[in-house]
Amino acid sequence: MNLFRLLGDLSHLASILVLLHKIQTSRSCRGISFKTQALYVAVFVARYLDLFWRYISLYNSAMKVFFIGSSCYILYLMKYRYRPTNDPSIDTFRIEYLLVPCAILSLIFNYNFMPTEILWSFSIFLESVAILPQLFMLQRTGEAEAITTHYLAALGIYRALYIPNWIYRYFTEGVIDPIAVTAGIVQTGLYLDFFYVYFTKVLQGQKFELPA
């Protein structure tokens, strides 16, 4: 565990707490893509169910339980408790365009051709693009509440911090994980446009608005 990874994980944790806070205090899930949240449940279940057969540390297991639990809870909030505030008509990204290529890629690129490893690869590939329905929705509406942008920023910073973590691990442990690194770079890249608007507008106190 190095500082980049710890801060990355804490940023991931913070992003979910920010999202829960936004939903609970505004009693609304307006502006949040149900499809992206559903994809995260798929990502976490596919990757973290290994907590039943792979023990790494208490920290690792506790985080896995938290991510599976909180993502399912968010789906529940969106689907049931705050259902009237969820507008599927603007959440129109076709997720089969993500699921099918990720499934094919995971059959080709994995560390061992066995179900658990294929699921692991699938979750890595799917996580890298799971934010697309959310970004697509943002693009369509052209604006977002500040709190929603804080959620997205924390989520983007999480993966961005994993990159120096991998560089650090390469030099200190000699280990390199090509699947995670490639997908991680793609994932971070998807946030670049968002980061630009976030850092130049939202953090300067302006509203998050995309140019028409």
Binding site: R5, D9, H12, D50, R54, I56, N60, M63, K64, F67, Y111, N112, E117, W120, Y162, N165, R169, E173, G174, V175, I176, D177, P178, I179, A180
Partner: peptide, 10 residues
């Protein structure tokens, strides 16, 4: 262990 297959990252 520090191999990619160890999957020790979140």
């Amino acid at each position: 262990s520090a191999t990619p297959e160890a999957h020790d990252e979140l």
